[in-house]
Amino acid sequence: MLSRRVIPCLDVADGRVVKGTRFVDLVDEGDPPELAARYADEGADELVFLDITAAPEGRRTLLDVVERTARRAYIPLTVGGGVRSTADMRDVLGAGADKVSLNTAAVADPALIARCARRFGRQAVVVAIDARRTPDGTWRVLVRGGRDETGLDAVEWAVRAAELGAGELLVTSIDRDGTQSGYDTELLRAITSRVSVPVIASGGASAPSDFVAAVRDGGADAILAASIFHRRIYAIADVKRALRQAGIPARATAGVGA
């Protein structure tokens, strides 16, 4: 049976891991390869590396940092930020990423999802959706690191992205990001009930019980978090324990002690 994945997220700006609140007020949290190695040792199931300043600065992904991170991890690595073409995706995969996350560029050019899936397989294509709640109870997509409104409905965009060839969706609640107020399980459920591809929940983790809720109430296949792991508020093992206690399959934590 497929284990639910616990995924630390490395938001990288200028080659350093940072973390903000609702995508702003960034605080330095360390060196990407060092953190990657630490999380792999502590039982992370996967890593997400987001070059959060690439899209706003109109620049490509930091390939050297990606490669140094990939070489320290020995677990799957998804890289996002600044990927705008199949050539960009080839370079990021060539640097050691297993999957690439598309966000701003996919909204601007949805056919990019299909082109990337055709060229590299849909398993390598993650579409990241940054969603903000509206007063009418729906969610809208934002791009460029949460800076720009798009008017797209987040659930409809999720369905379309999966149809176009996304192998996975990384769904971030901007309202919850960095606030430690729990995942937006309603947003997650609205999407997981409409798509059959795996959904990674993101934004708002404060305690192991939030991860359980994202899976049980939100239907998430994987759960991503940054601050609570970077600041050692909880260990990955704490989250795995909570998942197992709730009857959710989680991979037994094992270090790289080959």
């Binding site: 049976m1 497929l2 284990s3 639910r4 199931d45 192998g167 795996p198 994987a222 991979r251």
Partner: peptide
Amino acid sequence: APTLPHIGWNQ
């Protein structure tokens, strides 16, 4: 398969 692609850790 309940989800495809089959992505993740499995026994």
